[in-house]
Design a protein around this nucleic acid. Structure first.
Length: 357
DNA sequence: AAATTCGCCAACCGCGTGTAG
DNA sequence: TCTACACGCGGTTGGCGAATT
């Protein structure tokens, strides 16, 4: 069956609203309320369909509409909520007073989405993009070529910088592959009480071969303090059963290089909760904590700020996520003592968490 | 100065869902 | 249970101003 569009009727006006039409609509609704939207246009003396009137009212004429730029807090809220709800604009809008779903959707599509993409994050998953890692060396090479053409640096310096950047990209990609494997295998376990991870079970063989090959390629030129010498160390923790401490941190942990002067211990530890109960980022008391060598702190490091994790994930989250907030004591995610509100979800009040659950 | 491209955003379109008869 | 209607939602489009060539 299906329904014919409400605007099919001939003669109904479409397109931008005039001030006179706005005035008619506002006056009618202020006096009578909108009632039936389909009946409203006739009663208000408007040559529009009801749908058009409803949109004009809800997106523009409503008295509580907030105009102007989005604040940093609003932007943060949208990012947080989008990581949970996805493109549920109306649901997101209910938590941003005065903002409409349409406005938020436009803001996302024109600003936030691009921002995430530029920083190498998938705007839908809020995780690093693999295609970026794949193409990064090429992009860097192009960027370097441009600099060389501009005669800003001597050739030797260019070659060194390029090598450093490529090595970093390789390690980052390796890190991503390992974490992806851990994520997939961990999530295949139902109750998360104690998980035996098996990297070969659900991740493609080529991914692991790529990771190993990349590691082989990378390790030759990367300081030993950054990458373990023995492959088995890297994979050991990804293939053994671990029981987490109250902080959810396996011990000992191999260290993988991460940008932004941070080291994340690679672990597939799972806990009795549905969320990884990591403490405030980079306060891994039971793990080695090493700063990357100075030569790895290039501009890419500063741009790539992979520091976030969200419930049920082991892969980094968007750097745009707010890392500060109130402590999480007994949230619905069941984080144990010391687990902070590192995840954007935990910034939300308890009723909201239940609401979206 | 003119033409073209780009970015933003209000508005539209079509589909899904809830509900009354 | 079926059908038609009303509404809400998310994706898409088109117009307009700004920026660029």
């Amino acid at each position: 069956m299906g329904r014919s569009p409400c605007c099919d009727e001939n003669g109904l006006k479409k397109g931008p609203w005039t001030p006179e039409e706005d005035q008619k609509l506002v006056q009618y609704i202020q006096k009578h309320g909108h009632g039936s939207w389909r009946a409203l246009p006739k009663l208000a003396g408007l040559n529009r369909c009801g749908k058009s009137c409803r949109l004009r009212w809800t997106n523009y004429l409503r008295p509580d509409i907030k105009r102007g730029k989005f604040s940093a807090e609003e932007e943060q809220t949208i990012l947080n909520l989008h990581s949970i709800l996805g493109n549920k604009w109306s649901a997101i809008a209910t938590h941003l007073p005065g903002r409409t779903d349409n406005e938020i959707k436009n803001f996302w599509n024109t600003h936030l989405k691009k921002k995430l993409i530029q920083m190498g994050f998938d705007p839908m998953t809020h995780r690093p993009r693999t295609d970026l890692f794949a193409s990064l060396p090429h992009l860097l090479a192009l960027a370097n070529l441009r600099e060389v053409m501009d005669q800003q640096y001597p050739w030797e310096e260019q070659a060194i910088k390029l090598q450093e950047a490529i090595q970093l990209a390789k390690v980052q990609y390796l890190h991503y592959l390992l974490q992806s494997a851990a994520t997939v295998t961990s999530t295949t376990s139902n109750n998360h009480t104690s998980t035996t991870t098996n990297m070969s079970s659900s991740t493609s063989v080529t991914d692991h071969l790529d990771a190993i090959n990349l590691y082989n390629m990378s390790s030759a030129n990367i300081p030993s303090s950054v990458v373990p010498k023995d492959h088995s160390i890297l994979f050991e923790n990804a293939t053994t059963t671990t029981t987490s401490s109250s902080l959810g941190v396996a011990d000992p942990c191999p260290i993988l290089l991460l940008p932004n002067d941070h080291q994340i211990p690679y672990t597939t530890t799972t806990t009795t909760t549905t969320a990884p109960c990591l403490q405030e980022p980079f306060q891994f008391s039971s793990c080695n904590y090493q700063k990357p060598p100075p030569n790895m702190s290039n501009e890419i490091n500063q741009e790539s700020n992979f520091t976030g994790f969200s419930p049920g994930e082991t892969t980094p989250r968007s750097p745009l996520m707010n890392n500060s907030g109130d402590a999480c004591s007994t949230s619905s995610y069941g984080c144990t003592t010391g687990a902070s509100s590192f995840w954007p979800e935990l910034l939300l009040e308890e009723p909201f968490i239940h609401e979206i659950a």
